[in-house]
């Protein structure tokens, strides 16, 4: 998957851009008219070449200034694990790690992420082994439709890095920017607490 994505992204706007364009045209989701104002010089704003490291893989992508990191991850790189909910910073479905900090990918211009390291849900498993958070979410039934889950898990991973043994109140404030319309949160809080225990055990295991 990532190999294919890299090739199409590498092609960029100059050489092929076939894959990306075809995917966009086929989906038909993007409205063709953004607004009704007359064209300005900004409409012809040049594309920029950016480099990104996503889950350790290097990418070169050609982007227009108005593309967000979320647009590029999903539509240029084909990494659709990162979800688009509100597109306005409210729901957390698009949460990724950008240079080690969680951000809403819908609120970051792709250009602005040039040269950065990004981790998405696709990059969390190690050698086919689910991350303890992924496993705990499955085991605790903290996933229903699953739409919020990638963002939940990436934010939880950041929370546990800052605070390896959070209370359930601390989990709730740490997860305040991630909405779930299905689970009612109780199982999510429980799953994060459980993963914290597992991860502590793993660290002890490694230390001894």
């Amino acid at each position: 998957m990532s190999g294919e994505a890299r090739r199409s992204a590498d092609g960029g706007r100059r050489t092929g851009r076939k894959t990306g364009a075809a995917r966009r045209a086929g989906s038909g989701r993007r409205p063709s008219t953004v607004d009704r104002r007359p064209p300005t010089p900004a409409d012809r704003a040049p594309a920029w070449q950016i480099t990104l490291s996503v889950n350790g893989d290097p990418y070169r992508v050609s982007v227009r200034p108005n593309r967000t990191l979320l647009d590029v991850l999903r539509e240029e790189l084909g990494l659709t694990g990162t979800k688009r909910g509100c597109d306005q910073g409210e729901c957390g479905a698009c949460t990724v790690h950008l240079d080690g900090r969680t951000v809403n990918a819908c609120l970051v211009l792709a250009i602005d992420a040039d040269g950065s390291e990004v981790t998405t849900i696709e990059g969390l498993a190690r050698r086919g082994e689910l991350h303890p958070l992924q496993r705990a979410f499955v085991e605790e039934g903290a996933i229903q439709c699953g739409y919020c889950t990638p963002g939940m898990i990436l934010q939880a991973a950041a929370l546990l890095r800052q605070n390896p043994s959070p209370t359930s109140a601390q989990i709730r404030t740490g997860m305040a920017g991630n909405l779930c319309r299905c689970t009612g949160y109780a199982k999510i809080v429980k799953a994060i607490g459980k993963a914290a225990e597992v991860m502590k055990g793993q660290r002890k295991g490694r230390a001894s």
Binding site: P31, P41, A42, R64, P65, N66, D71
Partner: peptide, 11 residues
Amino acid sequence: VFRAALPPFEY
């Protein structure tokens, strides 16, 4: 406007 792309601009 939900899910519209950002309007174009120069960066």
